[in-house]
């Protein structure tokens, strides 16, 4: 057993867990945040994507112990004061989800993608290429791509307005 501590969605948390505990199990089972999903066990599907120290990580591929001391954000931590993150809002407005199972991972990957490229700098080809690590079986990706593009463009508008 090891004691693992991290800042999870802005809150300091710690727990004693078996050494082999995966980060996704820590989040889902120890912390009961079930928005992060397990879809494949082989780091292919991306349903478990979260942000660790600001970067997208497949939480089924990392031990909880490796996240000791890290700042972790899951889909539950994106909205602030009840206001949806622009990526969350864009997924709803563009019908970017159907069954909702891949959605948390898609949204977290999209947030990471926009962070890396800068808001407003994503085109369809880039988004499709960047989504390589996230599988969706329902939407055919059409509206996911549209959602991410819309969020990226909207966030660019927001940051311009703020300047």
């Amino acid at each position: 057993m090891s004691k693992v501590s991290m800042v999870l969605n802005g809150k300091s948390v710690s727990a004693d867990v078996e050494d082999r505990t995966l980060l996704v199990s820590f989040i889902r089972e120890v912390r009961a945040l079930t928005g992060t999903h397990v879809g494949c066990d082989t780091s292919q599907c991306g349903a478990c994507v979260i942000l660790v120290n600001g970067k997208a990580v497949k939480s089924c591929t990392m031990l909880a112990a490796q996240a000791d001391g890290a700042e972790v954000v899951t889909v539950e931590g994106l909205a602030s004061n009840g206001a949806l993150h622009p990526v969350q809002a864009a997924f709803r407005e563009n019908h970017g989800l159907q069954c909702g199972f891949c959605t948390p991972g898609m949204i977290m990957s999209a947030v990471d993608m926009i962070n890396r490229y800068g808001a407003g700098n994503l085109d369809e080809d880039t988004i499709r290429h960047e989504l390589e690590g996230n599988i969706c079986r329902c939407t055919g990706y059409h509206n996911i791509v549209k959602s991410i593009k819309a969020a990226s463009d909207q966030m660019a508008g927001m940051s311009q307005a703020a300047e």
Binding site: T74, E93, H95, L97, P104
Partner: peptide, 18 residues
């Protein structure tokens, strides 16, 4: 727009494994 979306985009869906 879908009534069900809010729970899915905020991680509040309730699937069997949850």
């Amino acid at each position: 727009l879908r009534k069900e979306d809010k729970r899915f985009i905020t991680g509040k869906g309730q699937y069997t494994d949850d």
